[in-house]
Every structure is written in structure tokens, then in C-alpha cells.
Amino acid sequence: MISGSFRLKTLSGERETLHTGSFQIVTNNPLVADSLSGRYRVCFLKNGSDREVMVKVRDLIHRRHRLLTAPLSGSVKPWETPYRSIMVSSDPCSAVDATSLDLIERAMEVINRSHNYLKTTKPSIDHDFQIVDLSLIESALPSAEAIGRI
């Protein structure tokens, strides 16, 4: 698989075209780490909070990585689930991606607000939250893998 960004030579100079195949998944979900680490690059924040996952992703975006999946994926509300998995490009682009930044900042606002809510998530349903989070990030894999395939 080719990774990184293609550089397209045009008459007006060089410009970036497409982020390609290579991606990483930032997660605090042990089930995602277990299930996907073998096949993909997974950055596992063990015992990390959903907020810490977002901070990690935000810092990557600041370092010019591009956000590939919606940070608030799923309709399980951020104040319900402790798990979050986000896909980010493995390699940096040439500039900070404004859309990625906008999305992560808005998502973090929602998360910040949600932490004012009472947290009573029970361990017995932990595994179900993990399964749903895994399913959400898995739903992005076919699209992510399709790119760069010729």
C-alpha cells in the first residue's frame, strides 16, 4: 500500500492531491485494540478517557494529520459511552486541515459539556459499549481501505 500524500506536479506548481491508504486508529477501547491491532496501526490509550482520545487526535491534527472519521460517531451519546475510536491519517499533510480542526474542536466542546453530567455507567454494560464502538469504527474500514487501491 502506498502511504502518505501524493504530490501532483502541475503547470502551476506542486499541489497535494489525496491522502492515501495509510491510517491509524486512536482508541481507548480494549476491544478495538484486540481486534484491529493485528491488521492496522492502533494507538491504544489504555484506561484513557474519551477526552484523552480526542486530545491525542487533536494534537495529531495540529501536527497536520488529517481526521478520517467523525469524532462523535454514533448516536450513543458522548455522555453515555466511555469508549471512543477515531481514525487519523498516518502521515502528515502539508498544512493543518481546517475541516479536521473544526470537527475535533466542536466535538471536544460537546465532550467538555457532557462531563458535567453525572457518570453512572455500569461495568456490566461496558462490554456492550465496546462492541458498539468497535462496530462504528469497523464501518469506516471498507471506505478507508478502498482509497489508494488501483
Binding site: 481526521l67 478520517l68 472519521t69 467523525a70 460517531s73 454514533g74 481514525m87 475541516t99 470537527l103 462504528l136 469504527i137 464501518s139 469506516a140 471506505s143 478507508a144 482509497i147
Partner: peptide
């Protein structure tokens, strides 16, 4: 309404 941003 997909998870993957390029799909969106």
C-alpha cells in the same frame, strides 16, 4: 450518514 469523513 457515515462515520468516514470522505463518505460524508
Amino acid at each position: 450518514e457515515n462515520v468516514y469523513l470522505d463518505d460524508k
